[in-house]
Design a protein around this nucleic acid. Sequence first.
RNA 1: GCGGACGUGGCGGAAUGGUAGACGCAACGGACUUAAAAUCCGUUGGGAGAAAUCCCGUCCGGGUUCGAGUCCCGGCGUCCGCACCA
Length: 885
Amino acid sequence: MTAESPKNERADRYNAREAEARWQKVWDAAQIFATKNDDPRPKYYVLEMFPYPSGRIHMGHVRNYTMGDVVARFKRAMGNAVLHPMGWDAFGMPAENAAMAQKVHPKAWTYSNIAAMKKQLQSMGLSLDWAREVATCDPSYYKHQQKLFLDFQKAGLVAREYRKVNWDPVDQTVLANEQVIDGRGWRSGALVEQRDLYQWVFKISDYSQELLEALDTLDRWPDKVRLMQKNWIGRSEGLLVRFMLDPATTPNKESELEIFTTRPDTLFGAKFMAIAPDHPLAQAAAKTNPKLAAFIEECKHLGTSQAAIDTAEKLGFDTGIRATHPFDPSWKLPVYVANFILMDYGTGAIFGCPAHDQRDLDFVNKYGLGNTPVVLPPNTDPKTFVVTDVAYDGDGTMFNSKNGVIDLNGMTPQKAFDAVANLLAGTTRGNRPVAQRQVNYRLRDWGISRQRYWGCPIPVIHCDKCGVVPVPDKDLPVKLPEDVTFDKPGNPLDRNPAFTNVKCPSCGGDARRETDTMDTFVDSSWYFIRFTDPWNEQSATTPAIANKWMPVDQYIGGIEHAILHLLYSRFFTRGMKKCGYVGIDEPFAGLFTQGMVVHETYRTKGGEWVEPSNVKIEGLGDARTATLLKTGEPIEIGSIEKMSKSKKNTVDPDDIIAAYGADTARWFMLSDSPPDRDVIWTEEGVQGAWRFVQRLWRLVGEIANVSAPAAKPATFGEQALTVRKAAHRALAAVSDDIGKLRFNRCVAHIYECANALSDAIGHIETAPTPDLAFALREAGDILVRLFHPMMPHLAEECWASLGHKSLVATEAWPELEPALLVETSVTLPVQINGKKRGDVTVPRDAGKDEIEAAVLALDAVQKELAGRRPKKIIIVPQRIVNVVV
RNA sequence: GCGGACGUGGCGGAAUGGUAGACGCAACGGACUUAAAAUCCGUUGGGAGAAAUCCCGUCCGGGUUCGAGUCCCGGCGUCCGCACCA
């Protein structure tokens, strides 16, 4: 497991380190990856999710950017004007944490990280247009974001709400619902508390239905991501129903309780009502009922404890209030406060039908309220059907559902839903219908206020006289002050009078500047549009140019952004369209989510994690043992996990590039594992990739030594034809698979091609015949262009050694001779009753009669038939023959 | 709990319903070398056989089909997402 340095220096080997630096300089000098906005060729926009400048790139970046680079280089060779930019998602908490820990200013920290990481990315040989580089923390970027905020505000997409928010006590900031994972902050891991604060929000929920429907148009997105977004938006259709309350039992003047239900068909099975602990009716009832007040207080605590949520016992408290059933004035239902009812979904109140809802059933079983089934499962006897511990939520036929007001018996639940909805919608009480149909979404508005320094300032001013006043355009950007301190928790902007004390733009009086900054997900919700014209100082975009390049044709990044970043970006693009910045709704036409880079973990008997470079592995399979390199102390080999600093199972891209070169790292990243699955990083695998780099170099060297006729020979001999077929077969296969991002198969095809060429050269006794020489040179030219997207430096070196004066990076993709893929004869496997018993070789276009004759002539078939006639012969042309006897 | 994906050699993985295991890694045997590394040649799913060849084999049990790793039904297992959503 020691990273033995390959001997790059030997003269007979390809010196990756030297060659890679050299070609990177050549590319840079020739400016071949700079993209012009007036390029007339068909556009192709390929983008990888831009990195957070943490300081160093990791293997996940290497994998992500290698994939994007393969696509970019391939599309360039295919004749597209390719836009392939890179930038920095540069605002965020780590910069402030570093400021606190290391006494370095977030700006200095961020920019030095950017410089370091840029150098690392450049060492990978990525074909990026660095002239378009943006950093979201730069005023030249966030100036436009502030203008976008104000434009969104004018367009009604921004609101300021007094909101119950998720407060991260460690990071001292508000988190969006999406940023709370299992009750903990997504970054700090701290238990999240509930607090009430004024929050700026983007009204993403205005687009719930549109964001949901448009998912169907994203046919080049993974189904998985579309489904995750669909579930996140969480549409449900139901009925809002107003229940009358028994006046004698209500604590205040409330005469009604409005509930939301998706199952009005089960109203005859109702046994109770339940309201959220923070429902106004519950609050009112608690005023005169100390026990209820205590219960409500208890619910609040339960909500924040992770363990309590997991065990999730359904608890309730009878308020004493009674509600009247809408179908029967004499039917009274008890109203409970229940800990499993959420105030922010529906109306914060439900009716409970225990027979057909598991939660409700658990609840009545605890409080002895009983249940009445009203949906009869198919093929079930109504006399014997009972519900005890398991609620029935399937389809069936309505029963037990009839009185003088309505008769649902015999209907399907769907029909019953409509019957109930129609009846109650047509019944009025106090000039309003008793019920109305309603669609609910799980998706909440996007709270963007963050009490942090290192973010984009929200460009508004608070004036006692004029209220909230937008910063005038001429005063943009609202720049972050640089003289800030991080010696105390909380937002440094709050204690910066030079920043906060301003004059009201409206009345000129003393006013206070907003100190909240924007969630960094705002920064990344439009950077892909900014890349189209990052030079525009006046506006976030130049619409004609944005419309030329957008949408992104291929977006590549991690699955962890399946909901947050991608949903916000879809919303933001719609907002920008509404404000006239772009003409499209969907920012990403094609999406690919790549797998993680994982590695075995190692730890001492004492439980301490050990870095792979310190471990020596011996043996095979289950018998593998590991010891500490220095001391020989035994090490436990742990599970394979995502590379992470905490488990010390990381491999530094810099070390790999220094030892083997970028091409080896790139090739290994693309080999073996399908790109959407995890790839296991192994030292053996990297060495295998490095050996192949050397092998290609030797192979091309041998081909370069072949002197071939300038003109294409009129005919090719068998050997030459074999070589040509191998090259063109690989060409066809790689072209197809690269377009589908199946890089692991591309790698296999390139191996096959190289194997075939090595084989052909190995069989040459003295000098190749002219036709073979020509075929080898042709195949060499094809092979080099085929692996160029994956290993661009090696490809340049090989291309030059083959005598070409051009750069392979600017060469067109090889042209396929389809005739070479067509075989003149085919060998068909012959099965008898589905088992292979031989094969026949027939002309490619042989008719069924001809094939049948050849098959029947086979010894194996003759023997099996023993004179009988076959029952049936199935002939699939150019595929297989099956004889049924 | 709900939703989804997946299950193939020692390992990563190939395989429009049509010869299962392409390609790579690892391993083993050989050549070259004083030796090693590198390189090259060969073997490599299991079993029987001297060989030709045959039998078994894609998590388990059924089914559809001339033919199933692939499609359908029922299990088991792994992974991912969501989770008191009414």
